[in-house]
């Protein structure tokens, strides 16, 4: 699949599907070290995205879709994840501008802008046990793949794999941001729900690009 507006739309539809499928898993992760709503919040948001996608104008660009997703998530998710993911997609939209087909550099820019947006709002650093711990390795892996000449599909696959590893790697951490930070040592051994949802969303991006 070429990385164009159809890809972005398909990515978002797949996102809605995987979030819905993993709703309970995300709720459970958040019950363990948060307040048990992450899966519910994300599912509500992406179901709203699904509805909104139907009204997209025919001439929409990838940036238009990302912006629509951003505003929809901001106005439906709530909690910490709503503004954070909302900002991520908003900044990603800005990064791809009016381009209609995204090459490797554009994808790296998209992911970098998304990550930077989350950091801007949430002030988390790597190792704080947040979604940043999935986003940052994903950005690094995407850059590395792109600079070693990989194609779009491989770049996304590298990002997804790194995000998944990053989510797993949050397990031994003590949290320093978000609700889990109140737990101190007791957060150890639990995966961060936001990092896990990031891994799911980036896996969706890669799978859709790979035609899977």
């Amino acid at each position: 699949m070429s990385v164009d507006v159809a890809w972005v739309v398909a990515w978002m539809k797949r996102s809605a599907q995987v979030i819905s499928e993993h709703r309970v898993e995300l709720i459970t992760l958040d019950r363990e070290i948060g307040d048990g709503d992450h899966g519910e919040n994300m599912d509500r948001g992406f179901q709203a995205v699904l509805t909104k996608l139907d009204d997209l104008p025919a001439a929409a660009t990838p940036g238009d879709v990302l912006k629509l997703v951003a505003t929809t998530l901001i106005s439906t998710v709530g909690g910490a994840a709503g503004p954070l993911y909302g900002t991520a997609y908003l900044k990603a939209s800005g990064a791809v501008g009016a381009e209609t087909a995204l090459d490797g550099a554009a994808l790296v820019a998209l992911l970098t802008a998304a990550r930077d947006g989350i950091v801007l709002r949430g002030k988390a650093e790597p190792g704080d046990k947040t979604m940043i711990d999935a986003w940052t390795p994903a950005v690094v892996a995407a850059e590395t793949a792109q600079s070693s000449g990989a194609g779009e599909t491989e770049i996304l696959a590298a990002a997804a794999a790194a995000a998944e590893a990053g989510a797993v790697a949050t397990e031994p951490l003590v949290a320093r941001k978000g609700r889990a930070s109140y737990l101190g040592e007791r957060a150890i051994g639990h995966r961060d729900p936001g990092a896990q949802s990031t891994a799911l969303l980036l896996r969706a991006a890669a799978d859709v690009a790979a035609g899977a």
Partner: peptide, 10 residues
């Protein structure tokens, strides 16, 4: 907001 979820900006 939703139960235990802060409301959105709207």
């Amino acid at each position: 907001g939703a139960v235990f979820t802060s409301p959105t900006p709207d």
